[in-house]
């Protein structure tokens, strides 16, 4: 077995609030193997998004109190700011939650992909960059004309595909997906998730998917971790979690999906 891509040990994240410090993530530990899809599920405020923000070092008015985070063997929390910026999207990329509003409204799609290359010191010969970007869009099922569009000219599903294309621009080893489909309607959700799965397989990257929809999650990931009030209360393969949930909150999550529940129980 190869070394894990991501290792998190005893992560604690605290926010400042007027009523004193608020413990948003408590003693969370898990790891992702190379090429693995791991899902973190939980209600809003359970600490799953905070975990991702802490990984990306994008917490506002919160900080990592203790814990260890290693990405490809490197200590993430100790990395200096300049090195960390270079590492974003190159080793660990993000597919954001708000697909509708995550693209800069006044820049063309081409410019918003190209600046990832520019700011990571990748120089191209004439024409090569355009070719690379066309190729990138093709992999998420978008025509090359999209490069010349502004975000408002795209549908929600197309915008999220653009975000997925961006996330693989630098061929990272880990893709963090923060409820990437929550703003989309059901049909588009499935297509977008399928696209994410396809590019992930092609790339051999690991995916950390966050969501509150147990059913959608179960179709996509290999393993699931359930978060509740900041703690990781249960973790295991999809089959194991559904067959034999240990924590009351996990049972509640599964019971709230009637159809899904029945088919699994019968199996």
């Amino acid at each position: 077995m190869t070394a894990p891509v991501l290792e998190i040990e005893g992560l604690n994240v605290v926010y400042d609030t007027p009523g004193g410090p608020f413990h948003a993530v408590r003693d969370v530990s898990f790891s992702l193997a190379s090429g693995e899809r791991f899902g973190l599920v939980g209600e809003s405020g359970s600490g799953k998004s905070t975990t991702i923000l802490a990984l990306m070092r994008m917490l506002r008015s919160g900080w990592v109190e203790s814990g260890k985070v290693r990405l490809n063997g490197r200590d993430l929390l100790a990395a200096p700011a300049s090195a960390f910026r270079q590492l974003r999207f190159a080793e660990m990329s993000l597919v954001p939650q708000g697909a509708m509003s995550s693209l800069n409204p006044v820049l063309r799609i081409a410019d918003q992909i190209a600046d990832i290359y520019d700011d990571h010191g990748i120089r191209w010969r004439r024409g090569e960059q355009i070719e690379a970007m066309r190729n990138l869009l093709a992999r998420v099922g978008l025509p090359p004309t999209v490069l010349g569009f502004y975000p408002h000219q795209l549908s929600g599903g197309m915008k999220q595909r653009v975000c997925i294309a961006m996330s693989i621009a630098l061929r990272p080893t880990l893709i963090l997906a923060d409820e990437p489909t929550s703003a989309l309607d059901v049909m588009v959700q499935k297509q977008v998730l399928a696209t994410l799965g396809r590019v992930q397989r092609d790339l051999g990257a690991s995916v950390l998917l966050i969501g509150h929809d147990m059913a959608l999650m179960a179709h996509f990931v290999d393993r699931i971790g359930v978060m509740y009030q900041g703690s990781l209360v249960e973790m295991g393969s999809v089959r194991k979690i559904f067959a034999d949930p240990q924590h009351a909150y996990t049972r509640m999550l599964i019971d709230s999906l009637p159809s899904f529940n029945r088919t699994r129980r019968r199996a």
Binding site: Q86, S102, L103, D115, I116
Partner: peptide, 23 residues
């Protein structure tokens, strides 16, 4: 949200300030 994504993309902060914020 697009400012958060710009930061996540690992862009230089001058670019985030000028082209994503100021613009």
């Amino acid at each position: 949200d697009y400012i958060a994504l710009a930061e996540a993309k690992g862009l230089r902060k001058q670019r985030v300030f000028l082209w994503y914020g100021m613009r």
